[in-house]
């Protein structure tokens, strides 16, 4: 079920990227797309009745059933890179707002 929901979230993000012309809305769409993708990747590694992949004094053996740690590590990488992309995109948007006075891509004029 959560896999269908994450794909639906991805599609919402793609729809926003295709239909919006406001820079801030485009960046928000990009983030929604990314969150849907991240949830999907984490869901690939889910094992039924699996434990969180950390050894503790309660779950102290690697012979127990754990969920797959590799997709979680990949998603941690993806989240950090998403933060970088969002920061760079917002900085670009702010620079463009300063020169053009608007966030709408349609209203910008060449100089």
């Amino acid at each position: 079920m959560i896999q269908y929901l994450s794909i639906a979230l991805m599609l919402v993000g793609i729809y926003g990227l295709l239909s919006q012309r406001n820079m801030i809305k485009l960046i928000v769409s990009l983030n929604i797309f990314e969150i849907g993708l991240n949830i999907f990747i984490v869901s690939i590694g889910f094992v039924k009745d699996g434990l969180a992949p950390i050894l503790t004094s309660n779950h102290n053996s690697s012979a127990l059933l754990y969920v797959d740690p590799l997709p979680q590590a990949m998603v941690l990488t993806a989240i950090v890179i998403g933060v970088g992309i969002t920061a760079l995109a917002l900085a670009l948007a702010r620079k463009l707002y300063k020169t053009h006075g608007t966030y709408e891509l349609d209203e910008m004029e060449g100089e």
């Binding site: 690939i44 039924k48 797959d68």
Partner: peptide
């Protein structure tokens, strides 16, 4: 979803 066999994956040697 949820029916993953970890022994077939590379993650089993990480664990």
């Amino acid at each position: 979803y949820g029916e993953v066999d970890l022994d077939e994956r590379v993650s089993s040697s990480f664990i």
